[in-house]
Design a protein around this nucleic acid. Structure first.
Length: 463
RNA sequence: UCCUCGGUAGCUCAGCCGGUAGAGCAGGUGGCUGUUAACCACCUUGUCGGCGGUUCGAAUCCGUCCCGGGGAGCCA
């Protein structure tokens, strides 16, 4: 065999009822236990959380030379007969007729032990951590969530748009851009101007696909992007990454209410999908990562999200009798402690805050009739905080242009963006959903660095 | 980036009123048992985060840098 990956995966093997069936599996040894005349091997191939228990009898020709030397991390290929397991813990097990050691893992060197490891330690071995129960489960759930995002939008007729990774337009307010350039900083020629720039102008990695998504929304109606996003902020928190994935739907002929409806529907769809399709992994998170996780998620899928305007939020915070470290006042941005109080103590479920002061929000958000607020919405979830940020976009040319000037942005630089308002403008709205924050919320993982395979943070990008 | 706590064996941590280290787990060897965080006995392991300073002497005190946790800011 081989290159073809012909063997069944362990998740399907464990489903089978038919004892006596011959099967071959391949995977990594999690542990070996010896008993009188044979050994138990637990083999995991990543297809599911559960291991397949292998019965390795000492009559196997390589029992002494190979099987007895197997340790955590070794890769094996096992051929045998499926049988009902007489002991608790598993319904079926594989009575091996042949065990081939594919790759050894020196137990004195291999960093993973058959014991619990801290996530901080596992982060130092990014290349090995998916072999653990928790990180493997995160990978499967993340994959399923990604699939759910696509199914949700595809079922609703949204068209996926691949917005550029390299961009020359900064989505104002979204954070620092990583520079992309071919120019050598120390060429020694004295040169170094824009003529050396590959694109002839400053370019960077995208901080948001929104502006380009708007282009396609105003042509195709409902679109979404789902791609990597980069922020060169010196952020050191459990919910920020320098490279993360963002989902950004953009809908033409849609207002803030339609925007909020889609966001809520989408979040509920994703949670239901992953609870239905990853029950074992979700159970692991519920038991070991965040007690009560499943109840929390069901609470989200079963209840309507709470709604409050920024002004109402300010009133609530002012009259609740609680003292906050940062004083509340209309016009200032809500602090973490304020958001947390509202979502975790007052509403105890996802909370949508709308209509923020225009002064604290980006130029592209649509100005409300009161002239001082914009049609913005943030969705706050208990534990993670802001998971969605969105708005109805300013579709009125004159208003948009004056807001750009007020924000110190040269309208000439954004001619293409203004054109969307000049020709066949239409109300439209959209939002950004931080994919890793969604994975965090769904898995209960405390640190965002555990929900992306290869986290990038200030000073950290090992492989 | 700011505040705060921490960095000691492969991992998790104790030792920190200065006198050059210890436990549990992991690993090794042997035994036992349809085992499943297996069990029992014995054994091994350390630039005490880096650099500099104080001191007869520093894991321990001081400075600085790096890294991690918690909180904050930025946001998704």
């Amino acid at each position: 065999m081989t290159g073809e990956n012909m063997h069944p995966r362990i998740n399907s093997v464990l489903q089978r009822q038919t004892a006596g069936e011959k099967v071959e599996v391949a995977g990594w040894v999690r542990t070996r236990r010896d008993t009188g005349g044979f050994s138990f091997l637990e083999v995991n191939d990543g297809s599911c959380l559960a291991n397949l228990q292998i019965i390795a009898d000492k009559t196997l020709e390589n029992y002494e030379q190979d099987v007895k030397r197997l340790t955590t991390g070794c890769s094996v290929r096992v051929e045998g007969t499926l049988q009902k397991s007489p002991a608790k813990g598993q319904a079926v097990e594989l009575l091996a007729s042949r065990i081939e050691v594919v790759g050894w893992a020196d137990p004195e060197q291999y960093p993973l032990q058959k014991k619990r490891h801290s996530f901080e330690f596992l982060r130092e071995i990014t290349h090995l951590r998916p072999r653990t129960n928790a990180l493997g489960a995160v990978a499967r759930v993340r994959s399923r969530l990604s699939f759910a995002v696509h199914s949700f939008f595809q079922q609703k007729g949204f068209i996926q748009v691949h917005t550029p990774i390299i961009t020359t337009s900064d989505c104002e307010g979204a954070g620092e851009m990583f520079q992309v350039t071919t120019a050598r900083p120390h060429a020694g020629t004295g040169k170094g101007g824009l003529e050396e720039e590959f694109f002839g102008r400053r370019a960077g990695l995208t901080v948001s696909g929104q502006l380009q998504a708007e282009v396609y929304a105003l042509a195709l109606g409902n679109v979404y992007t789902f791609g990597p996003t980069f922020r060169a902020e010196n952020s050191n928190t459990s919910r920020h990454l320098a490279e993360f994935w963002m989902i950004e739907p953009e809908m033409a002929f849609c207002d803030l209410h339609g925007n909020m409806r889609i966001a809520e529907e989408m979040l509920k769809y994703c949670l239901r999908d992953v609870m239905l399709n990853c029950p074992e992994d979700m159970d692991l998170f519920d038991r070991f990562i965040e007690k009560g996780l499943l109840a929390k998620l069901r609470n989200v899928t079963d209840l309507d999200f709470a709604h409050i305007t920024y002004s109402e939020a300010v009133e609530t915070l002012l009259s609740c009798g609680k003292t906050f470290e940062f004083a509340v006042q209309w016009g200032i941005d809500l602090q973490s402690e304020h958001e947390r109080y509202l979502s975790e103590e007052v509403y105890k479920r996802p909370l949508i805050v709308t209509d923020y002061p225009a002064a604290i929000k980006p130029f592209y958000m649509r100005v409300n009739d009161d002239g001082r607020t914009v049609a913005a919405m943030d969705i706050l979830v208990p534990g993670v905080g802001e998971i969605v940020g969105g708005s109805q976009r300013e579709e009125r040319y004159d208003v948009l242009e004056s807001r750009m000037r007020a924000a110190g942005i040269d309208p000439a630089e954004y001619g293409w963006y203004l054109d969307l308002r000049r020709y066949g403008s239409a109300p439209h709205a959209g939002f950004g959903l931080g994919f890793e924050r969604l994975v965090q919320f769904v898995t209960g993982m405390a640190n965002i660095r555990e929900v992306i395979p290869f986290p990038r943070t200030p000073g950290f990008a090992p492989c």
